[in-house]
């Protein structure tokens, strides 16, 4: 007999390979597309903002600044966005008893985390080779912010999955509510340019904390204003607990037709 933990590992592993195959298996170059797709998307954004809007950032090159906002935001977005319809999208698979909704979300989170980690590393190496001032001596802080962002996204993804299944309108409403988040998370601006009297309007946002921490990690001279890893960790923990609690209460309902 396999233990519950072993079954879950085997299931998540199977789902991950399945998703990888479905999304990229059919194409020429295959799995390379997993990296090329976000890279192309980013390249374009970097070109537009980097060349045409060459803004001056506090002690950080604009390209490094952008990569440390856009990549983690895309990671967050790709984990949470499809969580809303995850139950219906995977309905056919729930006939196989080992597969539960949380496994589908976990597999997806791991896959996106792998893809975007590789994308991030590739881009940072590229910038480093191009002579941008990038420092890799604070990898611990960088990894911690990145991991907490993944946990936070997974927790919110769980909440969304439960909400998307329980309320049909959540499907339409939540993406609308999420859109402004892009503009208040510091993807395009630094907290440095916000007058200190107004920072309270933005610094509640854990995504902003994650991005600023990452920037500071790769560029130690980049200033931080009331940004803390602990605050990010607290959000990640709270969202994960909330997500798991909601999921536990609603799992049976999700598996019911």
């Amino acid at each position: 007999m396999r233990s519950g933990y072993q079954i879950m590992c085997a299931t998540v592993h199977a789902l991950l390979l399945r998703e990888l195959k479905t999304r990229f298996g059919e194409y020429r170059l295959g799995y390379l597309w997993a990296l090329l797709e976000p890279l192309a998307q980013l390249g374009l954004l970097l070109l537009i903002f980097g060349v045409f809007m060459h803004r001056v950032m506090p002690d950080i090159s604009f390209a490094v600044f952008l990569v440390n906002g856009i990549v983690p935001y895309l990671l967050f977005g790709s984990i949470t966005s499809r969580a809303l319809s995850a139950v219906e999208a995977n309905r056919g698979l729930f006939s196989y008893r080992p597969v539960r909704p949380i496994d589908a979300l976990l597999a997806r989170t791991l896959l996106e985390a792998l893809i975007y980690s590789a994308v991030y590393l590739l881009l940072m190496m590229l910038l480093w080779l191009l002579g941008e001032p990038v420092r890799f001596d604070n990898l611990g802080a960088l990894a911690a912010s990145w991991l907490l962002l993944i946990v936070l996204s997974f927790g919110l993804g769980l909440v969304f999955m439960v909400a998307g299944h329980a309320f049909k309108t959540a499907d339409k409403l939540l993406p609308l509510l999420m859109r402004p988040l892009y503009f208040v998370s510091g993807v395009m601006f630094s907290l440095h340019v916000i007058p200190s009297a107004y920072r309270w309007m933005l610094d509640w946002n854990p995504l902003l904390h994650a991005f600023e921490l990452m920037r500071h990690a790769v560029c130690p001279s980049y200033p931080l204003y009331d940004i803390s890893l602990g605050y990010l960790a607290l959000w990640a923990l709270v969202l994960l607990s909330l997500g798991l609690a909601l999921y536990k209460g609603r799992e049976a309902a999700m598996l019911s037709t």
């Binding site: 085997a10 299931t11 592993h13 199977a14 390979l17 399945r18 195959k21 479905t22 298996g25 059919e26 196989y96 080992p98 597969v99």
Partner: peptide, 15 residues
């Protein structure tokens, strides 16, 4: 979009 073999492999990984 997956082949018969890939689908079988998926279920075999589960069970």
């Amino acid at each position: 979009s997956m082949t018969g073999r890939e689908n079988v492999k998926f279920v075999a990984r589960l069970y």
